[in-house]
Nucleic acid binder design. Structure first.
Lengths: 149, 149
DNA sequence: TCGATATATTTTAAGCTTGAAATAAATATG
DNA sequence: CATATTTATTTCAAGCTTAAAATATATCGA
């Protein structure tokens, strides 16, 4: 196989290694310090960005996970009183999911801790270095978007 | 929170986005074209790099996943005839996991396809660009390694 | 040697993830 | 209007993942 494909493979393996290490640390912190999980955090974050609520399909679309997946996570968040799931008047198939007041303040706490953890893990980057790598990855993401197969 | 922590957070979100997109594509291809999975691929890759076999704990150490996790994956690979699990003579607690001949040739096929998929997904990088980003991520990985908490 | 401690692995419980099938309701088409 | 298709969501089966508990064996120290 061509040299360039070897270089790309090596790049992918290193990207994956970094991601796994960081995600592992974040998962561990969420578990140890807040008895929570990354999927829950992701759902709460999406709902925090959309205070008017999201339908189940909008939520799974935003998070880019499967439809059925979100069902279970939201179920547990409802049990914990962090979100509500209410029928949509105009469309009896649909459900609107929304943060409760408790969910809003709980997520604020989580988000602040999360940002601090990430910042510590990425301490080897100063603002400029972080922005530079950010930009490179943004280019990659754009390229991946257009790749649609 | 400080500007730099915002920049690092943005960097993390973009890294995560790229990783998820790429991993999703690879998972989908493995499933559709080879009825396989990424965890299976990872185990086979580790065993391919270590043709003399690995103990369960060496395997989970290499892959940086939990001990119990590997048990189930290896179990299914044994069922499929791709690996063997044999007791270690000197230590009756331990098991040595090793690719079968079929496992070796099967993985060779998979690995070639995998490299081609990765190369296509990362087509926006030429050899130099890939190496540059590789190096940056390697620095990050070194920094993450030493972060041990 | 005996007992404590450490190591290798499996089991378990809980949760996450997917794709596919099942439901149910809305919309489009003849 | 009736039926076909599409859309929104849940359910299901299979597999992955973790941390913790359980098992079994090995090793260390008195």
């Amino acid at each position: 196989m061509a040299d360039v494909s070897k270089a790309r493979l090596r790049l992918w393996l290193r990207l994956l290694k970094a991601q796994r290490r960081i995600e592992g640390e974040l998962r561990e912190k969420l578990r140890a310090e807040y008895s929570s999980t990354l999927p829950r955090f992701d759902v709460l974050a999406a709902l925090d960005r959309n205070r008017d609520g999201l339908r189940m399909s909008e939520l799974s679309g935003d998070l880019k996970v499967s439809n059925g997946n979100v069902t279970g996570i939201v179920e547990r968040l409802v049990e914990d009183g962090l979100v509500t799931r209410t029928p949509v008047a105009q469309d009896r198939r649909a459900m609107k999911v929304q943060l409760t007041a408790e969910g809003i303040s709980y997520f604020a706490t989580l988000a602040e801790a999360h940002e601090a953890w990430v910042s510590e893990l990425l301490q080897s980057f100063d603002a400029e270095g972080a922005e530079q790598l950010s930009d490179t990855l943004d280019q990659l993401n754009i390229s991946l978007e257009s790749h649609n197969d």
